[in-house]
Amino acid sequence: MSEPLVIEVSGLTKRFGERTVVDHFDIRVPKGAIYGFLGPNGSGKTTTIRMLCGLLTPDEGEGTCLGFDVRHEASRIKEEAGYMTQKFSLYEDLSIRENLDFVARMYRLDRRKERVQVALDELGLADRAKQLAGTLSGGWKQRLALAACLLHEPKLLLLDEPTAGVDPKARRDFWDEIRRLSAKGVTVLVSTHYMDEAVQCDFITYIAYGKKLIDGPSAMIPALVGLETWRVEGPNLGALAERLKAEPGVEQVARFGAVLHISGTDKPLLNQTVERLKAEETHHWSLQVAGLEEAFIYLMAGARDNFALDTPPEIAA
């Protein structure tokens, strides 16, 4: 990694009572990167993000964020990081301008009126500045929240499931903005459930049960997951998909338009099954390099299973 590290922590642990929510979490985030946090609900993504931006003090572990100690310099981190919460957390009974102005005053910004006006113009909300924030739609609330996070020009942006309940168009615009910020050198940490968002990230870390299971550049994730994928074309795919789900070695059947992608981590077992079906000569089979999509569908499907189990299964290859 040629870029300097913005976050470098090791062994971060947080317990709430008896429960260990985050268990010895390590991460190294280079400047300007978009780093995706994936994992099921309750896996500790939000707690990890809160420890990184100084909202929570870790019980164990150490490291730095933006060059400040995560344990002892939380207030300095807060000055230079922007945190966008999962739920809309601006005041619904204040107007758009009042909200931005309030946040600007929290950071004691100079040229406050000017900054707020610029933010309103960029949002395209200048003519609705007096409208109460609570009356905005989900997509507009999200844009306003992002604008509020950016008022103090943070070097690090922490986004906790920022696009939940937002329509696809607004989500695309949102990610364009994230890309632009990243290009300017702002480091972005984002937690998400959406595959199409995970694909946008430069790096991915997968968390379950408070433990990091996978971590690396996006391009390397399929190899890390270790999926073997076959592509199937032919008639009657719906019936075939149903049948395949019960076959040994098949862990995932995903449909992409007129083709099926059949994946599994146990290569010999999967290939055995495929050879047997190939012999029926009803469909056209071809081996495929597993892509990010398959890997994420696999991770997310596994995540739901994880939730029901008591012990984390072995996902990493």
Partner: peptide
Amino acid sequence: MSGDGAPARKPARTGFSFRRFGAV
């Protein structure tokens, strides 16, 4: 919105801020 090089904020101070108190 970011990285224009101008200092966005006053140097970090740790005491009570009347401006923030006034804002609340």
